[in-house]
Design a protein around this nucleic acid. Structure first.
Lengths: 223, 223
DNA sequence: GAGCCGTTTCGGTGGGCACCGAACCGTCCC
DNA sequence: GGGACGGTTCGGTGCCCACCGAAACGGCTC
């Protein structure tokens, strides 16, 4: 009986299979229905039903290409909402060695929809603050070092209504903020292109390469 | 099978009674169990069960005083997560005149946990930006006008790990950001003390008083 | 065309849980 | 003290929905 239908959204996340699928899709990329079914450990038919509900609920969007069907989160605001929920969510007991090492990799570095998070994300954020690229209040200060790296930094925002160039994003493993927004997203894309960060396995986990370590220290003075 | 138990949190919000209670508690204040039961339109026994679950889930904290028991949201991060969810949640169809005028009042002005939101919130945010109290990237710039109003502004943050003095908070009715954080929260408290904003009814809705209109224009140059 | 494969739809089954009324407990007031 | 009242606990009922297998529906390949 409220103003918005919070409960409908809660029901979508209430199921562990759907929650797992959403967590997988937090990397912002497309995933096939079968891949999501395996991740959630349910039959393809069950996964299909879940995905239909997620789409009609507006959390996920689908794109059919050939005989495959690709799904991803519906937008950055959805990813932000899920991340802020994950911050509140209690830590889950780790079961087994494989998931333990997997979550350790996630803690070290991962993508958060379109930018970098985890230890790597906050290290990068702190380096950007020290180099005065952004302020400690997450405002863009000096974009020159980024432009030298080949990052496409758009013109400053003309109002508060646009998506911010830089904003703070809660990091649920580090329990603090890291840099998000248009500029950090562009930076993340560029770092992938340069080969300075690379994906670990097929999930969200990423790591800093040797060239990335050297390159970022050179560009920002520290890391 | 994820890293945190997102599904458990979703289950808490999945029930419409619990969701309504959480929406009521979004004002950050304490509410009695009976009041929340009436808001959700369920028997007191049912409400009690819901509140027990919300507490054990970490979303809500309770405080017994006398024969009453008061409940409120567990923290600002919980409120932020709920607000970001409400932004994603689809608009709900308005049923009846009473809820229509109530939601209209909410759109005009309301408290968002500890600061101001709605039309009033974004007008205030824009005035703060025009007056250069904060930047359009939600960083604190010049606290002098606030101190003249009697707002207690703490010293600048010494690192990125503390709760930010100012941050952007999504406004689900205005579909843009308004100012949140330590400073806007202190400002809201001060405006209540001055009588410049007052609550409308018993819920989250607030309105700007005549004295508030004049006082804020005087302090900030515009509104 | 036939065959394969990824995906979706459809019945049927089972478990979880929201709900209420009744009983119980603690606090306040006369 | 007794009575009223707010809140919680406890059984019992009924609904919602996650799950699977089987079958149908594309699209791709040979």
């Amino acid at each position: 009986m409220g103003d918005t239908d919070l409960a409908a959204l809660g029901r979508l996340l209430a199921d562990s299979s759907r929650a797992t699928m959403c967590t997988v899709m937090l990397d912002g990329r497309f995933h096939t229905a079968g891949e999501l079914a395996r991740a959630a450990e349910v039959a393809p038919s069950t996964a299909s039903e879940h995905l239909t509900r997620l789409v009609s609920g507006g959390l996920v969007e689908g794109d059919r290409q050939g005989r495959h069907r690709y799904y991803r989160l519906a937008g950055a605001d959805v990813a932000a909402a899920l991340e802020s929920l994950a911050l509140v969510a209690p830590e889950r007991a780790v079961t087994g060695l494989r998931s333990s090492s997997a979550s350790a990799a996630l803690r070290r570095g991962r993508t958060c929809y379109d930018h970098l998070a985890g230890e790597l994300g906050v290290r990068l954020t702190d380096a950007l603050i020290r180099r005065n690229v952004i302020t400690d209040e997450f405002a863009l200060a000096d974009a020159a070092p980024l432009r030298e790296l080949g990052v496409a930094v758009p013109a400053p925002a003309d109002g508060a209504s646009r998506r911010p160039l830089v904003r703070g994003c809660v990091d649920w493993t580090e329990r603090r903020h890291h840099a998000a927004g248009v500029v950090p997203a562009a930076l993340a894309t560029r770092l992938f292109d340069l080969g300075w960060v690379a994906r670990v396995g097929s999930g969200r986990a990423v790591r800093l390469t040797g060239a990335g370590e050297a390159g970022l220290v050179g560009a920002l003075g520290s890391l």
